[in-house]
Structures are given as C-alpha cells and as structure tokens.
C-alpha cells in the first residue's frame, strides 16, 4: 500500500519533469537569439563600471557597438583608456584609437570667503531645482551651487563635497573622466581636461560670463575678462569669449605666467612645485585655493 503510493508519486513527478524538459528544450530552440560570442569576451575585457562615459547605456551595449563597429572612431572607453582599448582592438583585429587621459576640473572657485552668501536656500538639496529657481545663494548666476548633484552622479567615489568651501572636490587619482558629473551639473561648470604629466593643471577656475564689474561684485575670484592673461601668454593658448578667459590645454606650456598676472587669482596652478622665491611671485596663490 505504502510502497505503491511512493511509486506512483515518483513516476508521476518524473514524467512531469520529463515533459517539462522537452517543452523547455523546444522553446529554447525556437526562441534562441544568435549573439556574437565575441560580445561576451569584449565585455569581459571592459572595466564593468557601467558608468556610461562612452555614451552607451552600459558596458554590454558598448561591447556590442565595438564588435559591430567598422572602425573605433569615437568609440572610447574613458575608464579603460588606451590600454584596454588597445587589447580590445587587438582582439577584434582593429586599429586602437589613442585615448587622451583626461580629468574633471571644476570651473568655479567661489568659496564663501570670496563669494559672499546673499540669501539662504531652503528647498530640496538638488542643484537642478536650485538652478531653475534663481541665481543661487550667491549673486553669481554661473558658479557652483554646492548641492552636490555631481558628487551623487560619480560612480567612482572620485568626488566629495567640501562642506566648508561649499564646492565639490575631485580626487584626481580616482577620476576616470567618464563625464557623469559633467552631465549632472546644471550649470555646466565641470570640464574634462587632458591630463598633463604629474597631473599638473593650469586653468581658469571661473564660469562667470558677466562683465567685469558685476562679476567682481558677486565674487572676488571671478574672471573679469581683463585680458591680462591673454597678453602675457606667448603661446596664444588663452582666449576670451563671453567675458571669460579659457586656456587651451593643447597650446599651454605650463609656464605659469598667466597665474601671476591674473588680478583676481582665478587662474589656478595645481600640482606644481613651489615657486622659487627669487621669481617675483604671490606665493599665497596656492594656499588661497582650497580646491585641489
């Protein structure tokens, strides 16, 4: 009696399993999608950060694009850089593009010390909302709002908010130039700049497009578009557009002449050895700039 129950159970369940297996097999055959096996392999080579820095939704999509691409023009993984792109190109038998390593820099230096707070914002801590509402807690309608959208966007822990300065800080070593912060910033004040050796940087740390007077009133370290840097630069690396100076990394030779010339100290020099005291200098330039 007992054994027959067990037997029936075993047989019926086994039959059920068998039928299900057959059905599954046919369904799997019918709905199978052919996928290039190379996609998996390319995906395995990629950093798997899914940061979107390449412009695709994730590493998988990028791998697909790489496999299907005719050439690697404009297909760059900023995280992996030349090395990984090279090995992917090797694997797929294509030409690897040269990736210029880049790093994000913040084009604003308006700490409360230089850029006085003129109002208090009590809405949600979200730069986009603040940007849509008004100029922000200071009178500068271009500079950093300090609510940290970029920090939240960074998937590499390469940014943090310096509460005292009210500005985000980018950690050069961790930054992979994926561009997530650039996209997140509603004021477009984060730029991806080509990395120089020893991570040296010279750039205009301001985004204020106002004329000199209002810009200076809103912030003591604003670019007032006086043009002194343009005159002092022997390499035509500096241009002024929209009342704002811009230093072209490709032309800049890191001579640092513009830094000392700038009357508002809005050109930053970072990761340089201290200047020799003999050269006429304002040595406090470096210490003045908490954003490094």
């Amino acid at each position: 009696m007992m054994s027959s129950t067990v037997l029936i159970t075993i047989i019926s369940l086994s039959l059920l399993a068998l039928i299900s297996a057959v059905i599954l097999y046919f369904i799997a055959r019918k709905f199978m999608v052919f996928e290039d096996p190379r996609i998996d392999e390319v995906q395995a080579m990629l950093p798997a950060a899914n940061c979107g820095g390449c412009g695709f939704a994730g590493c998988r999509n990028f791998a697909e694009a790489l496999v299907n691409a005719e050439s690697f023009d404009k297909l760059i993984c900023p995280v992996g850089g030349t090395e990984i792109m090279g090995s992917v190109a090797n694997f797929l038998g294509k030409e690897a593009p040269l990736v210029d390593p880049a790093v994000a820099v913040l084009l604003c230096n308006g700490t409360p010390e230089f850029r006085p707070r003129t109002s208090v914002y009590t809405g949600p801590a979200d730069c986009r909302i603040l940007h849509n509402l008004y100029t922000g807690e200071t009178d500068c309608g271009y500079g950093c709002l300090g609510k940290g959208d970029c920090v939240r966007a960074c998937t590499f822990d390469a940014m943090y908010m310096n509460a005292e300065a009210g500005l985000p800080v980018i950690i050069d070593e961790k930054c992979v130039a994926c561009g997530a912060c650039v996209k997140a910033c509603p004021r477009n004040i984060i730029e991806l700049r080509k990395r120089a050796k020893k991570d040296r940087k010279i750039y205009v740390s301001c985004s204020n497009c106002d004329k000199g007077g209002p810009a200076r009133r809103a912030c003591k370290v604003a670019c007032i578009a006086c043009g002194k840097c343009v005159k002092v630069c022997k390499f035509d690396a500096i241009t002024i557009e929209n009342n704002l100076a811009y230093i072209d990394v490709k032309k800049c030779t890191f001579c640092r002449k513009c830094v000392t010339e700038c009357p508002t100290n809005c050109i930053l020099e970072i990761n340089f050895p201290p200047r020799k005291p003999s050269v006429e200098v304002q040595t406090e330039v470096l210490s003045d700039n908490p954003v490094v």
């Binding site: 208090v120 914002y121 809405g123 909302i129």
Partner: peptide, 8 residues
Amino acid sequence: NILTVSPS
C-alpha cells in the same frame, strides 16, 4: 536681513 529663498 539675509532672505530665505525656496521654490513655491
């Protein structure tokens, strides 16, 4: 007075 600003 430093005024408070927030969205409506």
